[in-house]
Design a protein around this nucleic acid. Structure first.
Lengths: 190, 190
DNA sequence: CGCGCGATTGAGTAATTTCAAATCTAGTGG
DNA sequence: CCACTAGATTTGAAATTACTCAATCGCGCG
């Protein structure tokens, strides 16, 4: 099965697992097919799983009191997404996770994740590795916010993830960069 | 010894280690005493350790081509600091880590960290936990940059870490918030 | 006393926002 | 195939926010 291979490749890039171990790990994941626009996590939800993207694209975002949307991350194939604050601190979700396109994911409940990490040292290593990458990426983005203006951030994003340009509407890119749609629209001409 | 107890408490809050295990872990840490202004990591350095703060305060920052400083984090007692991008991807440092006050730290080399994580599953769990917290905190700060103006970010910071107000000069707070000193100075009156 | 550093204030400028309106585009039903 | 609509993008203009540069203030310390 395709999902299985996809996850396997993802894990094996960082750790080694026997076929039996992997099969056991995989048995804890549940496949889901979502349609464009489907909502996986809503503010206020209790969150108890994270999601590994097989195909398609998710976005994780926060909406403030003025109904302005801020995108925390786009999740493409091979990425993981959830409301980690809610998952980790066991509080209600404050962000939304939904589908930009039709999307296939594998879900892993946090209980199972912790159980598997406990049982399989290598897997705990994997998740430490993954989280560390995320941490570093978040700090790079923080620097980008502090150091660069709207145009600089836009160019950096397009250089790093050129595929986004055609994949997601401009207003979502604006919401990721933390600028208004109008400003983003004007950037090309300056 | 004080440093030992301090680290022990820090670890035991999240995981359980036998006295022997802890002693073994601790034997890999090296104590350092730094004076205010001392530099621990400079841009261009090869980085091979991270630092656990026992007392005092560090700052990790990036300086851009216009010599403007941006603070990635303040590290108070019980915090860990390094140039994680350099440490993790084995590239030259792009940030500086230095001492805001006289500071005592314990250093742990990355090789030892990986070795210990390998040998002691619980410790790997600890570092996954710690990194996950950092990841979530970084995303909260990202939202703060996107959602809030200078005043909002300042108030949020002062609410979360009121001790910073007296501990570090205002210009460093400005560099953490990503605003100019002048702007920060004017915030009180608005 | 006077130096030096951090903090404040003033004034002009640049970047970005908001609100409003116009334009473009893809998909739908006739 | 065309008209129509909803959503996305662009454009204009005024208002706001924050920046830069320059000058001043306040205070601790030799």
């Amino acid at each position: 099965m395709q999902a299985e291979d996809f996850l396997k490749q993802h894990l094996l890039k960082q750790i080694s697992l026997s076929d039996e171990q992997f099969a056991y790990v995989f048995s804890h994941f549940k496949p889901h097919s979502f349609k464009k626009g489907d909502v996986i996590i809503s503010p206020g939800d209790q969150v108890d799983a994270e999601y590994f993207v097989l195909s398609g694209c998710l976005k994780s975002f926060y909406v403030n009191d003025k109904l302005k949307m801020f995108i925390l991350m786009f999740a493409m194939p091979n990425w993981w997404a959830s409301d980690y604050n809610a998952l980790y601190y066991k509080v209600k979700a404050t962000t939304t996770l939904d589908c930009i396109t039709d999307t296939e994911v594998l879900s892993l409940s946090n209980d199972d994740l912790e159980k598997l990490c406990n049982e399989i040292h290598e897997l705990e290593h994997f998740f430490r590795w993954r989280t560390c990458r995320g941490y570093i990426a978040a700090h790079k983005r923080l620097l980008s916010f502090m150091n660069k203006d709207a145009k600089g951030r836009y160019e950096e994003l397009m250089k790093t993830y050129p595929e986004l340009y055609n994949l997601v509407p401009k207003q979502l890119i604006a919401a990721y960069l933390g600028v208004s749609r109008e400003t983003l629209s004007r950037l090309n001409y300056k």
